[in-house]
Structure formats: structure tokens, C-alpha cells
């Protein structure tokens, strides 16, 4: 059963930690489309964080197309888009380029970059367990 963990001691804001983990779980198929997530109140209570923190994480993922927020049904994992439109695709690729540039600047070699990308893709395809690095 999927779970998430946060660390308030990290520099990364808690809402981003929550969003990142949910994004990875959805991409890896651990949370399939149509899966209902706990309500903002329940998840915030379980984690002991402010309601706005979880609401912000859910809204971010909704904007990114990972979640659908419905009034009655709650928060549900969205179905993957059939095809990505031109400008959206260009924007995501630009984000990927920026991330790769930051990693290169941080000292990763080309080989390390490729290994990391292959590993993430393998995780998404379900051929490897998610690691918690």
C-alpha cells in the first residue's frame, strides 16, 4: 500500500515533497488512474501539517494534469493524456533541459545523467522498485 513521508528538516518545502512523491507514485503506476486519494483534511492530519500545505500540493498536481479535484468524489488520479499538445510539450521539454543543465552544473557526468534517466524511466514502466533517494 502506497505511503508518503515528509521531513520538515529539509530545505524543500513540505508541499513540494508531497507533490514530488505523489508525482513519482502516479508515474510509476503505484497510483493508477481513478485511484481516490485521502482528503486534504485526512492527509494533513495524518502528516501533522497545515491543511493549506496539502491543498497546495494537490492544486499543483491538478494543474500539471496528475490529479482531478472533484467536490464530491474527492481527489482522484487523472488518466494519462492521450497525446500532448505542441506548446505544452515544448514547455515540458524546456523544463527537462533546464533540469539536465542544473544536474550537469552540479557535477554529474553524461554517463551518470543517462543512468539516472534510464532508472527513472524503468521505475515508471514498473520494472524497478522506487528508491527513496
Amino acid at each position: 500500500m502506497a505511503s508518503i513521508a515528509i521531513d520538515r528538516g529539509l530545505e524543500d518545502p513540505v508541499y513540494r515533497q508531497v507533490a514530488d512523491q505523489l508525482r513519482r507514485l502516479i508515474a510509476a503506476g503505484a497510483l493508477g488512474s481513478g485511484t481516490t486519494l485521502p482528503s486534504v483534511r485526512q492527509l494533513a492530519g495524518d502528516l501533522g501539517v497545515n491543511l493549506n500545505t496539502i491543498a497546495r500540493a494537490y492544486r499543483l498536481l491538478e494543474r500539471e494534469g496528475f490529479l482531478v479535484i472533484r467536490d464530491r468524489a474527492g481527489v482522484v488520479v487523472a488518466a494519462p493524456a492521450k497525446e500532448i499538445e505542441g506548446p505544452a510539450r515544448a514547455r515540458l521539454l524546456e523544463e527537462l533541459r533546464a533540469t539536465l543543465a542544473r544536474l550537469r552544473q552540479a557535477g554529474m557526468t553524461t554517463e551518470e545523467l543517462l543512468t539516472a534517466v534510464r532508472r527513472e524511466v524503468a521505475v515508471m514502466e514498473g520494472s524497478k522498485e522506487i528508491d527513496d533517494e
Binding site: S3, R8, G9, L31, L37, P38, Q42, D46, G74
Partner: peptide, 12 residues
Amino acid sequence: TKAAASLYVGEP
């Protein structure tokens, strides 16, 4: 500083 939560919805 650490906390964990299940994504199991259950039924309230």
C-alpha cells in the same frame, strides 16, 4: 521532523 502517511483512503 519526519512524518509518514498512508495514501489508503479507507472509509471514514
